[in-house]
Design a protein around this nucleic acid. Structure first.
Lengths: 225, 225
DNA sequence: TGTCAACAAACTTTCGAAAGTCAGCCCGAG
DNA sequence: CTCGGGCTGACTTTCGAAAGTTTGTTGACA
């Protein structure tokens, strides 16, 4: 090779594993063994290990010394803690975003919402899990709302919380049929673009809390999560 | 060996590196090369690599593909972002701690303060950097204040922000001679034990902001940081 | 039948060398 | 003198096998 190598193999495996977890192809709680991994991802033990180490830091994978790695299991307590953290922190970041974001940021939010609004919740062939397309669009929309915040550190914290939340969404039983999610998203966008920090923060808090509540109710009824 | 292995070699190297960074034995910006590392820490490249990967996640080390690792450099922007994040988030966690902490937690805070109060700021042989003992005691005191918070996730976020802040403190020029840090700490403890969440949160916010201000002033006068 | 130790299999962790990449240097051409 | 190509040395990344740990099983003994 002559040019600058963009990334490393471990980087690549990391991204693929991450995508597979978020996409539901790896089940929470599932053990991740090196023999399998190095075969499935066509890599060596070392590279797989580095990828896993990074996923542990992200919270997507758990590990105990000499007992290997597994996809972080979902749990009530986990969801409860995650939700509280999101309820406290995300509105904070949204406020900053609303205060500091420029026109390009506004445009990004509007664009992301446009896509989300037109992406169906379910895929054609599966009406139990949200479609990959919707998940991506949903994540992108929320990310775009926060993206105005200039503090990369706070942004990173909020984003990592959101990502874990997407995982709970991915593994939840179907919901949202009876709920006006689209309306909530629209209201959130409007308040944000209108630079009404108080309203936007309140809407976001409710949106997060409401979603978590439905997830818990869904899990209690049909025990899929 | 027969019993359960408590940890791994990579774990060990990780902890030692971390301690060396926080203790100022590794300089911010300093390149971390594998040949040196594996010699100094008596380990293989692989183990050193895993340790570094984890330190990157913690924010203590930076890396770019194919260009190796270096201790995260300190900077104005870094300090400003860190401070803002701390000002926003730590008081939040302190509120929860004050609300949820039990008597054991109170006792821990009182104990940590007792130690801090009796630990001299400077070591006998060096009056430019805070002593290792004081740094530890200071970190332990602040950690103990937050430790009442039951939400491990939020606790982890706050603690990681604090740890990075200790690093800026470590590399700051001397300060605190003219400042009543001890008084601030005592007031913080009192408000916390009295379960006055509003006051405690406000004191903590001021404490953080005040410290950052002095750090910046110190860096502008004598350009050590 | 229940308990425990030794064994076996599977996996995790560690290692050090091989392969790949970058930065700096030298040298020749313009 | 300046610019660019190729070379060298040092370092990073990758690999797969060796060493070490855990888990499950088997068989002896109470």
């Amino acid at each position: 090779m002559v040019g600058r190598m963009a990334s490393t193999r471990a980087d690549d495996v990391y991204r693929r594993l991450r995508t597979d977890i978020l996409g539901g192809r790896l089940v929470p709680g599932q053990r991740l063994k090196f023999p399998e991994l190095s075969q499935n991802y066509e890599t060596s033990v070392g590279a797989a290990r580095e990828a896993l180490t990074r996923l542990v830091a992200d919270g997507f994978v758990r590990t105990q010394a000499h007992q290997g790695f597994c996809v972080t299991p979902l749990s009530y307590e986990g969801l409860a803690e995650l939700t509280q953290a999101r309820v406290e922190i995300e509105p904070l970041v949204l406020r900053l975003s609303v205060r500091e974001g420029d026109m390009t940021w506004e445009a990004g939010a509007v664009a992301a919402h446009h896509v989300l609004e037109r992406t169906p919740f379910f895929a054609a062939d599966d009406d139990t899990h949200p479609s990959d397309a919707w998940s991506s669009a949903h994540a992108a929309f929320h990310a775009s709302l926060l993206a105005g915040c200039r503090n990369r550190r706070m942004l990173a914290i909020a984003r990592s919380l959101r990502e874990e939340a997407e995982l709970y969404l991915q593994w939840s039983v179907a919901f949202g049929r009876e709920r006006d999610v689209a309306g909530e998203h629209r209201a959130l966008l409007d308040a944000t673009i209108a630079r009404d920090a108080d309203l936007a923060a309140e809407l976001l808090r409710d949106h997060i809390a409401h979603t978590a509540q439905l997830l818990i109710r869904g899990a209690t009824d049909g025990p899929e999560a």
